[in-house]
Amino acid sequence: MTTPREWEFAGVRGAVTARIWPNGGARYVALLSHGYGEHLGRYRYAADALVRHGAVVCGPDHAGHGRSAGERVLVDDVDAWVADLRTVAESARLDHPGLPTVLIGHSMGGLIATRYAQRYGAELAALVLSGPVLGRWDALTELLKLDEMPDVPIDPSTLSRDPEVGRAYVEDPLVWHGPFKRPTVQALQDAIDLANEHGSLGALPTLWAHGEDDRLVPLAGTRAGIEAVRGDDLTERIYPGARHEILNETNRDEVLADITAFIDRALG
């Protein structure tokens, strides 16, 4: 596997750690946006597949996540994460001038990626959304009704049919295992509303991939969001029996083959 290197920059909310999986013969940049409570180090398998496909792969640990600074999982405006993601993209463009950028976002990272595409879509060649938090996420609505956030960790069995994925998640010290924080819950809801209101992604080639048995970010809620933002070029892949982390699922090679085939088409 390709060994990533880390670098640090001054983000909107403090120091942000980014990773890059180099590729001397790259033909495109794959910009990764990870999900809530986790970090980019959990994307090694996907990054390696993308490097073999011809990408230089990069992305940040969002502020308050992984190796980046900031109070854990706290944000008051998702667009602050969008701004940090764009800093990584701009660095990649300077290091690899002329290469097209494909943005890949998972779960909450899919919401961040959608907001990025709505604001800076002209800078992207394609967008891939894996189990994205879009449209309607009933868990947020229920949390906002409570006076206190419950200290209930994510059930690792909902991540993947592969029990090793859940075990590694539980034992990962860089993963947040505590409760949601109210400002973050509100910021996520506000970003969902903004994405819905902004509307179409226009001509940007977009792949939406989702596990049929996703109990963390249910398919029906996301579908409403996809309908709100879909543009002229949407490809949909729903994987029977798959849970939330399709990039870590038992059929992850099938998922990654679909993603790389979509990228080939988008890049022409």
Rank of each mutant, 00 (worst) to 15 (best):
S68R: 10
L74F: 13
G98M: 09
A117P: 06
V57I: 14
Y116K: 01
C58D: 06
G64T: 08
E90K: 11
L127W: 04
L50M: 15
A69W: 08
G64L: 12
H96K: 07
G109C: 05
W81R: 00
G105C: 05
G54N: 11
D76Y: 07
Y120P: 02
G70M: 14
E123P: 03
C58P: 04
H96V: 04
V56N: 06
V88M: 11
Y43K: 09
A69T: 08
H96N: 12
V78T: 05
E90L: 15
L103M: 10
L103Q: 01
L99D: 05
A83P: 08
H53S: 15
D61R: 08
V78F: 07
R52I: 14
A69P: 09
I104M: 11
V102H: 06
W81F: 07
G66W: 01
V57P: 10
R93Y: 04
A80N: 15
E71P: 08
R93P: 03
H106P: 06
R86Y: 06
R52N: 15
T101Y: 02
I112G: 00
R52A: 15
V78Q: 05
A63V: 08
R93E: 06
R42F: 09
S130I: 10
G54H: 12
L50G: 10
R115W: 00
W81S: 00
L94M: 11
A46F: 15
W81V: 00
E71W: 11
A126E: 02
W81I: 00
Y120K: 02
D77F: 05
C58R: 03
G110Q: 01
R93W: 05
G54E: 13
D79C: 09
I104L: 14
V75L: 11
P97V: 02
I104Q: 06
D79V: 08
D84P: 12
S91P: 05
Y43I: 09
D84M: 12
H62E: 05
D48W: 11
V82G: 07
V57N: 09
L111K: 01
L111S: 01
R115T: 01
H53W: 14
R42C: 09
D76Q: 13
R119C: 02
M108I: 03
A80H: 15
H106V: 04
V51Q: 12
L111H: 02
Q118W: 02
M108C: 06
L129N: 00
P132S: 05
V78P: 02
R67L: 14
R119K: 12
E71N: 10
P132V: 02
G121D: 10
V82Q: 05
G110L: 03
G54R: 13
R93K: 14
V78I: 15
R115C: 02
R119N: 07
R42M: 11
G109Y: 00
L50H: 13
Q118M: 07
A55M: 14
V73G: 08
G110F: 01
